[in-house]
Amino acid sequence: MAAGGDHGSPDSYRSPLASRYASPEMCFVFSDRYKFRTWRQLWLWLAEAEQTLGLPITDEQIQEMKSNLENIDFKMAAEEEKRLRHDVMAHVHTFGHCCPKAAGIIHLGATSCYVGDNTDLIILRNALDLLLPKLARVISRLADFAKERASLPTLGFTHFQPAQLTTVGKRCCLWIQDLCMDLQNLKRVRDDLRFRGVKGTTGTQASFLQLFEGDDHKVEQLDKMVTEKAGFKRAFIITGQTYTRKVDIEVLSVLASLGASVHKICTDIRLLANLKEMEEPFEKQQIGSSAMPYKRNPMRSERCCSLARHLMTLVMDPLQTASVQWFERTLDDSANRRICLAEAFLTADTILNTLQNISEGLVVYPKVIERRIRQELPFMATENIIMAMVKAGGSRQDCHEKIRVLSQQAASVVKQEGGDNDLIERIQVDAYFSPIHSQLDHLLDPSSFTGRASQQVQRFLEEEVYPLLKPYESVMKVKAELCL
């Protein structure tokens, strides 16, 4: 049975990233139509530049190519590739079939990587351009969430054990800070992308030097003109047959890092959902379990974690691919890159769409948070109580021993009897502590235990987050809708 299948058929496997999760716009960027249309555009740009620099290419040939950029006979191309065992030459023939007058000058002087690699770089750039505003929107939604809850005390956790208090907004800023680093890295790697350009079979530009009869300047002009037509500021000066596969490492490393950030955020949300302090959106008709109707599973956060793990592992592909590119190139890269580049971007696209949807509907339960604080705060307040007693004339050592005994009794009630923490009640009825009984409410005010959390939130948002989001103001209103 021949390899390949009808990918629109229910009898043929289709990647869930495309069929179930990723956005239509990201799927289109990695589609065959987008790819092969870009090949034709690159052939047109090459012909236009070659004509401008004096090669015998007519206006009629150029116009014929322009008129057929979208006229792609995919069936013919597939048949040609089956016959020739070469995808680029299959599309040269297919393009030439609908451009008979231009057929002889299509791909003039070029090698397969002229269309293959340059198209990949265009796709990487455009895919990054799709991700950047999506990530900015996630940051914006979380920034709104953090600002609104900047002063809401909550129990902090280290080692997932109760620690000092923080605020809900401050905790959210930990998430935002990681995503801001990801946004900066995505922008950097996007701006650092260079075009492969017009380089020939081993990167020496020998074929173009021959076409222009040894004119170095025209060869350099050709490279520059096509690079500018493709919208790049610069091209690699040095290439082998391909652009260095280190570029793929750079791009997928940034995406993998984004995956790590999203995994951490969504894990926190899942843990908070278990504590009943916070939940992701839950639709009115949504079913959490087929057997347990009360369940409210954090399905979206779980999906993000599941896909983020996949995204983090994909960076190993370009690392290994770059390491086995012998001399000017081997074909070890080809099949692998067809999979890992598309999957990385479709996965990143999915987790950003999902995280935006989550961040637009996060639900906080202040009463649950308050109750958990009441359970733990008495123990945390013991040092403040000791200091207040010393100020009232008591002995630190005597007070410490009193607190120690009462704390152990209260802990026994919590752990052995399943009761509430009654340390404060014990202190309130103990005559030894009568000098500070009137101060206990103040000493137990949760806001006095959150330090500068709310001020940190305000400063972080104003100095770091809002300036970073400013270039994306025009796209901030787009909502994230999930079908599944």
Rank of each mutant, 00 (worst) to 15 (best):
V198L: 14
Q408A: 14
E463R: 10
F74E: 15
G4R: 13
P471G: 15
T242Y: 00
L130Y: 14
F460L: 06
Q397I: 06
L209V: 10
R194E: 00
E80V: 13
K134V: 09
K66Y: 11
A291K: 01
R338N: 01
M316L: 11
A18K: 11
Q416L: 12
F95Q: 05
L444K: 07
F208L: 13
R372E: 02
R338V: 01
W45D: 11
I72M: 11
D117S: 01
M299V: 11
H91V: 04
Q458L: 12
L42R: 02
Q320T: 12
A273K: 13
K147N: 13
T227S: 14
L142V: 10
A22S: 15
S334I: 04
V198R: 02
G231A: 10
I351C: 10
P100E: 10
S257W: 09
T111P: 00
A103T: 11
M389L: 07
S31Y: 02
M387C: 10
Q63R: 12
L155W: 00
V198E: 03
D129Q: 11
L319G: 03
S359F: 14
I106F: 07
T38F: 10
K82T: 12
N336G: 14
R137D: 08
D120V: 07
H217P: 12
K187L: 08
V478A: 15
T267C: 08
M89L: 01
A150E: 09
T330V: 08
D441K: 11
L468Y: 01
G288Q: 04
K66V: 10
Q63L: 12
E464P: 02
I62D: 00
V315E: 06
K284D: 12
N118A: 05
Q221P: 00
I403N: 07
A127C: 07
T330M: 04
K224V: 10
R40P: 02
Q205D: 00
E64K: 07
C399I: 10
K82R: 11
R190Q: 09
T313Y: 10
T347V: 08
E376A: 04
C399Y: 01
H97F: 14
R338P: 00
D317Q: 08
T166N: 09
T158D: 00
T321E: 01
G169M: 06
I265G: 06
T154P: 03
M65I: 14
S447A: 13
S12D: 03
F28R: 07
H91Y: 07
E250K: 09
K82A: 14
S334N: 11
I265E: 03
S448L: 14
Q41F: 13
F195A: 05
L314V: 08
C305M: 05
A163M: 08
V138H: 09
N71V: 10
L423T: 01
S290I: 02
K75N: 13
N421S: 10
E220W: 11
S395Y: 07
D248Y: 05
S151P: 10
Q408R: 12
L142T: 08
Q221V: 12
K415Y: 03
L42F: 03
Y34M: 08
L44M: 12
I369Q: 07
R190G: 10
W326N: 06
Q439S: 13
A18Y: 10
Q320W: 08
G104P: 14
M389Y: 04
S407G: 09
L84T: 04
D73K: 08
L155C: 02
K170D: 01
F449L: 05
C98Y: 13
F345R: 04
I436P: 05
H7N: 14
K367E: 07
Q458G: 12
V198H: 03
S395A: 08
V364G: 03
T111G: 04
D216Y: 12
S301P: 04
H442C: 12
E25S: 15
I339W: 01
F28T: 09
G4S: 14
I57D: 01
K199A: 14
I122Y: 13
Q375T: 04
A47V: 07
L482A: 13
K233A: 12
G200W: 00
K35C: 11
Q416D: 15
G419L: 10
C113E: 07
W43N: 02
F433I: 06
T330W: 02
Y365Q: 08
A410D: 10
Y365H: 10
K170P: 01
S9L: 13
P153L: 00
C113T: 04
D215V: 13
K284F: 13
Q61W: 06
R296E: 01
K276H: 02
Q161K: 00
L469V: 15
M389R: 07
F36V: 14
T321V: 09
Q409M: 10
G96V: 10
P435G: 07
M387D: 01
M26E: 00
L341R: 06
G394R: 11
S12K: 13
Q184R: 10
P100Y: 11
D445T: 15
M312K: 05
E213P: 13
N68I: 05
L311A: 04
K134L: 14
S151T: 11
L319W: 09
Q456Y: 05
R374W: 08
L108P: 00
M26L: 07
R149L: 08
R245Y: 00
C172K: 02
A146G: 06
S253G: 13
D191E: 14
E79G: 10
T204E: 02
Q409S: 10
E81D: 07
H437L: 06
G54V: 02
Q51M: 11
Y365N: 14
V465A: 10
R329D: 01
E25A: 13
Q164W: 04
D11E: 09
L84Y: 10
G203A: 00
Q210T: 14
N126V: 11
S15E: 10
I358Q: 01
V315Q: 08
E213L: 14
D216T: 10
E50I: 01
P56C: 08
P318Q: 02
E343H: 13
A136I: 15
Q397R: 05
D422E: 07
Q409A: 13
K66C: 11
Y294I: 03
L132D: 12
F195C: 11
A348W: 05
Y34H: 10
L307G: 14
Q61H: 10
F379L: 06
